[in-house]
Simulated scan of single mutants.
Amino acid sequence: MKGTNMTTTARHSTRLSRRAFLGAMAAGVGLIGLPVRLRAAPGATGPAIAFDGDALILAKDILSRRDGAGGWKELSAPAVGSILSLATHPGRPGRIAAGLAGGGVAISEDGGHRWEARSQGLPYAPVTAVTVAAAEPDTIYAAIRGDGLWKSEDAGRSWGLAMDRPWLADAERDLTALASVDLATGMGGIWIYAGTETGLTRVPDCFCRWQDVQPGDAMDALVSGKPAPSEAPLPEGETINALVSAASQPTRLYAALPSGIWESQDAGVVWSQRLSTSALAVAVPPANADHVVAVTGDGLIESRDGGANWTALARA
């Protein structure tokens, strides 16, 4: 790939994931018998998208950036592995977090031109989703395949376990998408919403229990045990490929599913379908909740009216 001005510090944790270790011990298997996972080759396979201010960052085959209405420019992808997920925060312009297929998180502080591996303490497994805390731009969450939700409070320089994987439909489920949502109903105003292969779940920032999305505040939901409302939920049994909260209007959520793009205007209680084409990724700029960009099997598309109408977004 073009652009060799990249600097990367590859300091991945080499320890086994907590779950792999416990699973091996429970099965009576010595650690020497566990498979060795190879580091992924460099590249930006994606698809993953995120807005850095008004600039769109796209990881699909290559890593590229489109500033405003300008053309696309190819960026140097992290040398430590292919990108599975991207996250940004309006309070830290230029900072991009990338979850890597080969394990770990890479951070760029200059809009995607140079990357540094920041994975100290993370299990060495694919990072299927990343998000930045809505009110704390130095706090990053990472979903680790086969493990759970991990948290860094120092922009990825160190990590600790925040929450196990949710138990849904009689099994522990991997997290496929993450969004930090700033809502008055959360514990301290923050929820972590997560997509799985079976649907949507969330946890308040007390990290006490995964729960269904429902009206009311976090404490009411924790003590009531009431089921999620049946009125217009997301389709059951579908993998949520991507999830985003509009920074300018936090109750506005968009989700990318095999059945299309879905929108909620009430923080995930009621959803409406805005696109019926299978969607792989979705992003919203921080200043405009009506501007939606999505990756589908046919390419890159955008809507300027909250998903009512869509047009192709050319990529050079």
Rank of each mutant, 00 (worst) to 15 (best):
K2T: 14
K2P: 15
T4F: 12
T4W: 11
M6C: 13
T8M: 14
A10K: 11
R15Y: 12
L16C: 02
L16M: 12
G23Q: 05
A24C: 05
M25S: 00
L34Q: 09
L34Y: 01
L34G: 01
R37S: 03
R37D: 05
R39Y: 12
A40S: 14
A41R: 11
G43C: 02
A44V: 07
G46E: 09
P47D: 08
D52K: 08
L56Y: 05
I57V: 13
A59Q: 04
K60M: 09
I62V: 15
A69N: 15
G70N: 11
L75F: 10
L75Q: 08
P78Y: 07
I83R: 03
S85M: 08
A87D: 07
H89R: 10
R92K: 15
G94I: 06
G94P: 04
G94Q: 10
R95I: 10
R95K: 10
A98R: 07
G99D: 04
A101T: 03
A101M: 10
G102L: 06
G103Q: 01
G104S: 04
V105P: 02
I107E: 06
G112N: 05
H113S: 08
S119H: 01
P123G: 09
Y124S: 12
T128V: 02
A133V: 06
D138S: 12
T139M: 07
Y141W: 12
A142N: 06
I144S: 03
D147M: 00
W150V: 09
W150T: 06
S152N: 11
A155Q: 11
R157L: 14
S158Q: 08
R165K: 12
R165I: 02
P166N: 04
W167T: 02
A169H: 14
A171M: 08
R173H: 03
L175H: 07
T176H: 03
T176N: 01
A177N: 01
S180E: 04
S180C: 07
G186A: 08
G189N: 10
I192H: 02
Y193T: 00
L200Q: 01
R202L: 07
C206K: 14
G216T: 04
L222F: 12
S224G: 11
G225F: 10
P227G: 04
A228E: 07
P235L: 03
G237I: 00
E238A: 08
N241K: 00
V244D: 01
S248D: 15
Q249A: 15
P250W: 03
L257R: 00
S259D: 09
S259R: 06
Q265A: 13
A267W: 08
R274N: 09
S276K: 13
A279D: 08
V282D: 01
A289D: 09
D290C: 06
V293R: 00
V295M: 13
T296C: 12
L300D: 11
L300S: 10
R304N: 15
D305F: 06
G306F: 08
G307M: 11
T311H: 14
A314R: 13
R315N: 11
A316K: 14
